[in-house]
Design a protein around this nucleic acid. Structure first.
Length: 271
DNA sequence: AGGCGTACCTGAGGGC
DNA sequence: TGCCCTCAGGTACGCC
């Protein structure tokens, strides 16, 4: 389901709903989703206050009183749902939190790929993640250094979270279209102008998507059940056979497969 | 080291 | 109607 803009939207919504609430009770219905295994997982959360709710890449990071953190990855269909005291559990609810004021937080996930993990205060759980694409550290020069010498297709490179962390299939396709770069171009072969265009396109696409509260291509809704709006302005993702939206291009969007992922692009203006 | 294929799951949608 | 196939916003792991 979610890439950086969707996770950012979820985190902002959660922060407004649950910050400083005290966890009264936790129930895990699908043990393989959580680490450590229940019942320790529940015990480590019970009685804790949620002191922070932040995003790193596509991860949601809750900081607890005792300094441990709860790290959540939604993978494809994971979803947080904030609910009032007497609301029933949604379908596919696998982890249930109840706060001392009676309100609830459900973690629902149709495909059950989502994962939650409690990490120690000084644990380097994010050590393998690349740079945040909207941070000051992500400069054109930084992008150059990361791409240098790589033969892997630029789209595959963008999806690799060890280099830049937070971009997924939708925004990789959209940014490459905006920068007029063919998805199969070897990352190390990008000319300086193309690298600069890609850098600008990535930041622009991600910022616009956050502003529109993410993309609801199929399932995605935020913690309050609201859909995003970016699906209404997608240029290429999922638009196989349609005309390229670039003025006077005249090409049409095709779908190919790169790194086992659907890839939408315009052969005419992306080179 | 880096790139590729497969595995993990369920549901939606298209073709026949 | 219903069966069968493909596809889906992601990552981990094993193999070369």
């Amino acid at each position: 389901m979610p890439e950086l803009p969707e996770v950012e939207t979820i985190v902002r919504g959660l922060a407004s709903c649950i910050l400083n609430k005290v966890i009264a009770h936790v129930d895990v219905n699908l043990p393989r989703m959580v680490t450590p295994a229940p019942p320790l997982f529940e015990a480590m959360l019970r009685g804790q206050t949620l002191r922070a709710c932040e995003r790193r890449a596509k991860y949601i990071v809750f900081t607890l009183d005792h300094g441990y953190q709860l790290i959540v990855h939604l993978r494809m269909t994971g979803r947080f749902m904030y609910a009032q005291a007497d609301d029933a559990a949604p379908p596919y609810s696998h982890v249930h939190f109840r706060f001392t004021d009676g309100t609830q937080l459900f973690f629902a996930d149709t495909r059950t790929f989502g994962r939650m993990r409690i990490v120690e205060p000084d644990e380097a759980w994010a050590a393998g993640l690349g740079v945040e694409p909207l941070s000051p550290e992500f400069t054109v020069n930084a992008l150059h250094a990361l791409c240098k010498g790589r033969t892997t297709p630029i789209k595959t490179f963008l999806l690799d979270q060890r280099h830049i962390a937070g971009i997924g299939n939708i925004y990789a396709c959209e940014a490459l279209w905006q920068a007029r770069i063919a998805p199969s171009t070897p990352a190390g072969n990008l000319k300086p102008a193309a690298r600069a265009a890609l850098h600008a396109a990535l930041q622009d696409v991600l910022e616009r998507a956050i502003h529109m509260r993410g993309t609801s291509a199929r399932d995605y809704v935020d913690a309050e059940g609201l859909k995003g709006g970016f699906q209404n302005v997608l240029t290429v993702y999922g638009r196989h056979g349609q005309a390229c939206p670039r003025p006077r291009c005249g090409g049409s969007i095709e779908r190919s497969v790169l790194a086992q992922r659907g890839t939408w692009w315009c052969r005419r203006c992306q080179r």
